[in-house]
Design a protein around this nucleic acid. Structure first.
Lengths: 255, 255
DNA sequence: CGTCCCCTTGAATGAAGTCAATACGCGTGG
DNA sequence: CCACGCGTATTGACTTCATTCAAGGGGACG
């Protein structure tokens, strides 16, 4: 099957893409590639962006600030993630997308996007799935900051990120890259940096995580899930169309 | 134009619907009407619902529970709101929809939905807009529980609900119906009922709200917005297609 | 008239934030 | 090669905001 990109690998979790679908996606993603440094902005609140973005490498986040400077990270973007599907409808960004590490991403114009999705129904379907999962993740984050304790919140975030990385093949056994700062974890979970630090200490002391120099090890994922009350169903990883022939045109996922 | 339904009134905020679009929407919504009592469930976590729902009257909410019983309200549904666009793609509900008051809603099958949206591009466009706004609202809620204090959170929620009610014409001057319990407010904001109560007392004492019997009065919305650091842009109420002739078929909002 | 919700309030407790000092690690330049 | 500096991580002491527990109070409805 060749070197799979994170995007294709992720979408395959839901829809069986044909070889032709994959070629179309590859082409779509290679047309206009941008690179920016860590901690730079991809798009700012108030902007009126023209293109959809697909992360190719690096980590980014969606973030929103209150007038007085308090800031919340609303979601993380890993390789293969799409940002700003909305741009084709909404006028103005109500939040900011920022790179957390040096970042490579593809820009896709509205026309190209519409052309590819109309020619490749399974790609359209897969993008829909991705959008709906993103909504489910956002709901889970609301639950996370609204109800879970500090220990549970951070554990939950580790579980989510580890599993998302696993989906795109970026884990090795129980290990993964982990470039986030403690202040990023704080902004994502609604906790102060100091309290994140104490919570990490606690997680380490219970041997739930090993976090050292941009690498995370989870010795026992099941145990961490229990601590986090992590229920994977919101990620909707169940494959919808196992039985669908990827070469049939216009196929629709069986329900 | 006749008696506008909340749905049409809301969608008109974004797209100019033709008389024919409106008739199609009316028909779509009147085909299969359900009624249930307050505090009953519309759809449960784990269900595999077959239909999209449109609230016709009453208030509902999306809610999710942790294993140990802690519960978070993830969003409110007011008349004219859609729930479960996702059902056509995702297999299984990862949350519950529950009525907060006696509720009337329309059920729309996938086929009907696809037929209407393919025949009426502006309706499809408006549904997209509604979905993207729902995502923006969910992000704002994450920010709300993650960063705002109790006073700010509850103020913010009041502003949001008041404005959403205003969009569908359910306010009279600075007043609106408000059937939520203090425990609902708590579950929506991640606060205990007791603390909601104290916070309401504080809001009342500053004359920011008057809340009595199921009615809310906001003497000075601008002042409440300031307290909440409420920035309306996330509701994306700017009209995209003022200049578009609603009788041109296949029109697309100018950007 | 009593009962069931829901609202209200007080007192004690607890989780997380703030402030401030210190330690670590890494890259740069002397 | 070492010293310095800067960004990040760590820790302690104290404060604050919100929760919990517990006890009334009030209104709607049978």
């Amino acid at each position: 099957m060749g070197a799979e990109t994170p995007l294709i690998r992720k979408l395959q979790k839901f829809v069986r893409l044909s070889a032709e679908d994959e070629r179309a996606l590859d082409k779509l993603v290679q047309e206009r590639i941008q690179k920016i440094g860590g901690r730079e902005d991809v798009a700012r609140e108030g902007d009126n962006p023209e293109t959809l973005k697909v992360i190719l490498s690096g980590w980014a986040c969606r973030t929103k600030m209150l007038e007085d400077g308090r800031r919340q990270i609303l979601s993380f973007f890993l390789p293969g993630d799409l940002c700003e599907l909305n741009i084709y409808i909404l006028r103005e960004m109500d939040h900011t997308i920022a790179a957390l590490t040096p970042l490579t991403y593809a820009e896709i114009t509205r026309d190209k996007f519409e052309h590819v999705t109309s020619q490749h129904p399974r790609i359209a379907q897969a993008f829909w799935w991705d959008t709906l999962v993103a909504m489910a993740v956002q709901r889970e984050w609301t639950l996370n900051v609204g109800q879970r304790t500090a220990l549970e919140r951070i554990s939950h975030l580790f579980c989510e990120l580890f599993i998302k990385l696993d989906v795109i093949g970026r884990t090795r056994r129980n290990r993964c890259e982990f470039p986030l700062l403690q202040s990023d974890l704080g902004e994502a979970t609604g906790l102060s940096t100091v309290h994140v630090n104490r919570t990490l200490r606690e997680l380490r002391s219970q041997n739930l995580i090993v976090l050292r120099g941009k690498e995370l090890t989870i010795p026992d994922l099941e145990r961490l899930k229990e601590v986090a009350m992590f229920n994977i169903s919101y990620l909707h990883l169940e494959h919808e169309s196992q039985e669908l022939d990827p070469n049939e045109i216009g196929g629709r996922a069986a329900r």
